[in-house]
Design a protein around this nucleic acid. Structure first.
Length: 256
DNA sequence: ATGGTAGTTTAACTA
């Protein structure tokens, strides 16, 4: 079972890129973030033509997440349980193909300090609570998406330059580690304990050409998923194409 | 010190 996550930065602007990536990478389950459209405007026909079922939690202009799966999507949850009055569409979860999968678009949190950073930490507290609740069910789980957290300095091209950024703050990193300490495994670091493995390069200042990247898109696995993890890779190719997203896909293979 | 890019939307926000 191949599970991928991809922050597309507008599904409308990115549709040709996403379709060609689906054809070449052939993931079984896909978590999309920043679709930037309401549910009715999601290009469902083009995706369903590729054999995917889909569940969308959309929003006008900003945010928006979706799940694609070759298997039926059951028990679909839109928004984080316990955070029902959150106006921002950043979480969708479902049971599909024998796994529980969530597509996560965690708040950026800049500028910091301020209400954006407070919102980020509050949102992470709700995510942590959900992760803990799910863990008790002892299912294979993949919590995948754009976490907007650089877990360690080695995951950033310029740690000193990013020292004041919301993505590297001790509070952000501590909440990310809390998910690990309760029992979730960072799939990429399980398979590749060291090395860059960036998933994001800014559009500005030639970041892609200089390989000035960040590792902020993560696949977090419950023990029942981690025990069956076979591979995990960043796929940098989509970032180098015309009309690319500023993120690139990352995927893992789980033998169920 | 500023600006550099992209998307949505059409001036300003988010990233």
């Amino acid at each position: 079972m191949k599970i991928a996550t991809f922050n597309v930065n507008s599904i409308k602007a990115r549709l040709p890129r996403v379709l060609e990536w689906l054809d070449e990478a052939a993931p079984d389950i896909v978590c999309l973030q920043e679709i930037k459209c309401i549910d009715e405007n999601f290009p469902a026909l083009e995706i369903e033509d590729r054999g995917y079922n889909l569940a969308v939690h959309g929003q006008k202009t900003y945010n928006g997440v979706a799940l694609l799966s070759k298997f039926p999507l059951e028990d679909v949850t839109r928004g984080l349980p316990g955070n029902e009055n959150d106006p921002q569409a950043r979480y969708i979860e479902a049971f599909t193909g024998g796994l529980r999968v969530a597509s996560i678009y965690l708040p950026n949190g800049n500028p910091r300090p301020g209400e954006k950073f407070d919102y980020k930490l509050d949102w992470m507290a709700h995510l942590t609570a959900r992760a803990r609740a799910i863990l008790e069910w002892e299912e294979p789980v993949v919590l995948a998406g754009d976490y907007n957290v650089i877990p360690r300095d080695e995951d950033c091209f310029d740690p000193e330059g990013w020292r004041e950024d919301a993505l590297t703050q001790p509070e952000s990193r501590a909440k990310f580690r809390e998910i690990q300490f309760m029992g979730y495994t960072d799939a990429l670091r399980q398979i590749r304990p060291s090395g860059q493995n960036y998933t994001f390069w800014d559009y500005q200042r030639g970041a892609w050409q200089k390989d000035n990247g960040l590792r902020i898109d993560h696949l977090m696995l419950s023990p029942q998923a981690a025990d069956r993890l076979k591979d995990c890779q960043v796929d940098p190719a989509p970032r180098g194409r015309e009309k690319a997203s500023d993120h690139t896909p990352i995927w893992c293979e789980i033998e169920l």
